[in-house]
């Protein structure tokens, strides 16, 4: 009896709720934290990596140990949690990795389709809408489960400048100055609420982002094996958007500079033996 309104996604419960969608959102609140801070000069985006361990061969994972700036950021992305969707848009994902991959694929296709028809980079909100239209479809049309993924979108376009959006499995989206999804998101958001100021520099946004992250994550010291980090800025010369996905050594250097940890180069890849953080161990491979 208890399962009556649980089993199918597209059926309302008598209280007017869609349980499967709510369960999907619940799954995400156990996933690795993703956090972003907007400033006038650019946006900082950090994501907690859950799949770690010394036996994990990172060189085989998508992206491996790569990263980089501008075009370089395409060649490998961040790996697990941070992806470039288009030249002007980065996304941080929390939830089921395999669902996330298919969403990333969809949005990259949509962005290229826009570039093809209009010869311009897709406006950030339009891409968010495209993706949310699809996510919403899975809460309404028969027999399929919703995407177990929430995203933070970090981007720039000529109409509205730097923008930060968040979307959830129901297909809702909203714009933010600083926000967080995944494990401990509510405590992180209240920390951000305290410390956010409207006139942050990029430097300050980066440090606010990482400092809040360090308080949110369970582990005491941050390091590149547990964290991914990226920024969206404007190229000082061309005034065009410039995505930068930090390479592990760059991130460690930044963390050391902010005194938040940072793994020394010879320690990179050793990591902890198990996935740390909110989710229980059984979920490591599924929900990150």
């Amino acid at each position: 009896m208890a399962r009556r309104y649980d089993s199918r996604t597209t059926i309302f419960s008598p209280e007017g709720r869609l349980f499967q969608v709510e369960y999907a959102m619940e799954a995400i609140s156990h996933a690795g934290t993703v956090l972003a801070v907007l400033s006038k000069e650019g946006i900082a985006l950090a994501a907690e990596k859950k799949v770690t361990g010394k036996l994990l061969d990172l060189s085989l994972a998508p992206g491996g140990q790569m990263g980089g700036e501008g075009n370089q950021a395409w060649l490998g992305g961040g790996g697990e949690k941070i992806f470039l969707l288009n030249n002007n848009i980065l996304a941080g994902l929390a939830g089921i990795t395999s669902d996330a991959n298919s969403l990333v694929n969809f949005s990259r296709n949509a962005a290229q389709q826009h570039l093809f028809t209009y010869d311009e980079d897709i406006p950030v909100e339009m891409l968010v809408q495209r993706l949310c239209d699809m996510k919403q479809g899975y809460t309404q049309f028969g027999g399929l489960r919703p995407f177990g993924v929430a995203l933070l979108y970090v981007g720039w376009d000529s109409l509205h400048g730097f923008q930060l959006y968040q979307s959830d499995p129901s297909g809702n989206y909203s714009g933010w100055k600083a926000t967080c999804i995944g494990a401990n998101h509510s405590s992180a958001t209240s920390l951000l609420k305290q410390d956010y100021k409207d006139d942050l520099t990029l430097e300050e946004a980066r440090s606010l982002c990482l400092k809040t992250m360090s308080k949110t994550m369970d582990s005491t010291k941050l390091g590149s094996e547990k964290l991914e980090f990226a920024t969206m800025t404007l190229d000082p010369k061309t005034k065009q958007p410039l995505a930068k996905i930090y390479r592990p050594n760059e991130l460690d250097a930044l963390l050391r500079q902010l005194e938040l940890g940072g793994t020394s180069d010879d320690q990179v890849g050793v990591g902890e033996a198990t996935g740390g953080g909110g989710g229980d161990e059984g979920n490591v491979a599924m929900s990150t």
């Binding site: 209009y118 010869d119 311009e120 339009m126």
Partner: peptide, 16 residues
């Protein structure tokens, strides 16, 4: 989209 196409994008669309 609440914003009109900018001239460069409009030209690309019309051309296509």
């Amino acid at each position: 989209n609440h914003n009109a196409l900018l001239p460069p994008a409009a030209s690309a669309w019309i051309r296509r």
